[in-house]
Design a protein around this nucleic acid. Structure first.
Lengths: 152, 152
DNA sequence: TGAAATCCCGACATATTCGGTCGTATACTA
DNA sequence: TAGTATACGACCGAATATGTCGGGATTTCA
């Protein structure tokens, strides 16, 4: 439980791949799909979603494809997951503004909402660039990234 | 996405309910189910799971039922979720020790493993007692709980 | 201008998981 | 031994996730 969908995984992998190939103007969905052995048509739909949410720029025609819409440092894992899987909530009840539909007594909700925020915060602190960098775990210092703290 | 199953929710609610009724020796699955309007047989199975994992003590027969096996402060939300839904992983690939079955290139895994640890840490820092206390949001100071920090 | 490459998008099919029920066996109490 | 309760496996329907198909639109290039 509490796991990312494969679609979100695929999306993150694809963005990472694009971030690792900044020299090429654009890569087609098929290029990326082949690189990772994931279903091309499925990945295509995912990339379309990411495009619609402004994370990618697309270009049809020969030598077309997808490219990052922003610098890899400016795209967070959170945005990707959110674009693909929609808003997530830890509790099954936190739907919209109205209280839990189960019973008025689902008081579990409030404390877990903080967990939710924490997870979102962590995810927001991770950029596509971070994912791409971790590829080659050189000895370079790595303590300059995000710090997330939370008080319960 | 990334949400708890209803079973886990039910389990947390049930433990919270037990924590709120320390005076009674034991409460039956039906008692708890009725209190929240949860399907009794389903909750029964959940409580059985929690018992098997040592979070509850059960007692058959009249006036039997379930009681917390430990102090509510000593039972974390993490344990409950883990007992009910099994080990969770953010990435769909992090299965066991072997690398991602998809491709050798699922390098997304490593950075997200840290996210996973963070979430687990947050969940471990929340006790059933915390859930029960949040019930009555009195003016009492609440900054004495957990603090979770993570460097990516 | 036409063919090839590519994105776009909705519908459909399949697979897996989740939520819930049923039936029966077992344990304890009075 | 009657009644209350847990224990547990089998099953089922519904929801969700994953993957496929097919037709259409856009761009490039010869």
């Amino acid at each position: 439980m509490l796991k990312l969908t494969k679609k979100a995984d695929y999306g993150l992998m694809a963005l990472k791949y694009l971030a690792e190939h900044p020299e090429t103007a654009a890569l087609s969905a098929k290029d990326v799909a082949d690189a990772y052995g994931i279903p091309a048509q499925l990945l295509a739909k995912i990339l379309q979603l990411l495009t619609k949410h402004g994370l990618l720029r697309s270009h049809a025609g020969m030598n077309g494809g997808y490219a990052l819409a922003r610098d890899a440092r400016e795209i967070s894992a959170y945005e990707v997951i959110h674009a693909i899987d929609g808003p997530f909530f830890i509790t099954s009840c936190t739907k919209g503004t109205k209280s839990c539909e189960l019973t008025p007594s689902c008081t579990i909700k409030e404390p877990l909402a903080r967990v939710n925020e924490t997870i979102a915060g962590v995810l927001k602190s991770i950029s596509i660039q971070d994912l791409a960098e971790h590829e080659q775990p050189t000895g370079r210092a790595r303590d300059t990234h995000g710090l997330v703290a939370l008080t319960l």
